[in-house]
Design a protein around this nucleic acid. Sequence first.
DNA 1: AAATAGATTTAGGCAACCCTAATTCTGGTC
DNA 2: GACCAGAATTAGGGTTGCCTAAATCTATTT
Lengths: 226, 226
Amino acid sequence: MAPPTQPLTRSVEDYLKAIYQLSQGGSPAGTTEIANLLELAPASVTGMVKRLSEQGLLEHVPYKGVELTSAGRRAALKMVRRHRILESYLVAFLDYTWDTVHEEADRLEHAVSDRLIERMALALGNPSVDPHGDPIPAPDGSMVELVYTPLSEVPVGESVELRRVETRQADRLRYFAEHGLVPGASVTVTARQPFGGPTTVQTGDGDRLLGAELAGILLCARAGAR
Amino acid sequence: MAPPTQPLTRSVEDYLKAIYQLSQGGSPAGTTEIANLLELAPASVTGMVKRLSEQGLLEHVPYKGVELTSAGRRAALKMVRRHRILESYLVAFLDYTWDTVHEEADRLEHAVSDRLIERMALALGNPSVDPHGDPIPAPDGSMVELVYTPLSEVPVGESVELRRVETRQADRLRYFAEHGLVPGASVTVTARQPFGGPTTVQTGDGDRLLGAELAGILLCARAGAR
DNA sequence: AAATAGATTTAGGCAACCCTAATTCTGGTC
DNA sequence: GACCAGAATTAGGGTTGCCTAAATCTATTT
């Protein structure tokens, strides 16, 4: 039952990761979506998708969309584990910050061995989340994905704990870090303007006004819900 | 004076490293030598060599051999630095042994950024040699290469310090490590059989008989010479 | 000086991936 | 029910980097 798969190329690994990410929402990934994410022409995606379907990594319904097969998902989750362990390691031991680490991990994830990843994981104490609060799949591909509430939807008056930051954009990440808005931080929502207006929060760092976009990518654990 | 070079591909990096290594002996590298080292067909090497010459990284005299230009040497030394810092880091912090580390470093060296290498170097305290005793080029490409004496040529009766092990073959490296024959170890030559016969050495670990091949790849610092 | 072994190069191909331009399909609209 | 915009696919190319087979060159031997 061991996967007899020949090693995947960098390109293939990138496609699988992208399709995994786009399928998160439940519906199959579209050609153009994939193309945008990988910064390729849609025609190139069609070609690769065809090859990967033949290899049994994808399920492709022409003109409809692509989904990962279980072999594809397994490979994608391995890449996600690599990426998140790498990010965690670089931040913990090599002075990277969460806004600079993504790029480095994106290159390294194609070059590391399983052995290296497991040693890094061990050195980190087998973490379950990365510096952004994203869950790290176990070596067997299992992953516990908790459901959090966007800060933009936390009722006024409630105190919550920041758990996860859903962006890789360096400028936003830097802004969050500068103001103590990192996983683990406690914040209280003190006000919110209507019609997609800003949310006001109280942090250990003082009060801060967050626009709807930023408040929407800060995911929080509410007291009762967990 | 900054190198305006576009990023090199993995293949190109491998060629430059190979040619650097083969040119160490002074004479230009031959097509077949390069092909053997990289496990490619000689015809493939001819093709790549032509492209790299046009890019100004190599000096190729058809039917004679190849040498690195100064741009080529600079790039090659950068790869050597990457490789040796990686090996040092993996051994120091991630429990690799010197017989397993080469392969991992060979893949990683194409994926790491300069920034990562410099952070690893810093974490290591800017080492000047790697776990095998090979000198590590400085970021500017300068490298101090000391001249050592092969154990096979150390006169009987002399005590020397092991400094460098010139092989990447895992089985030999494992044998050396098992018997304390690692850089820094002190050994005394107690006997040597003539006509390429074995050398007998006394180590902290006891006495040991080393055939000509093994004794030839253990490089030693002699007392006076250094 | 001719022969020849071995190294090197040329010729002709192939696979992976990417691109642009042209075509075809799908899901609404009017 | 025909039409249209946008999505997806097909057609036709290009590059990189590898291979095998067939020349060709070099250097050494006879």
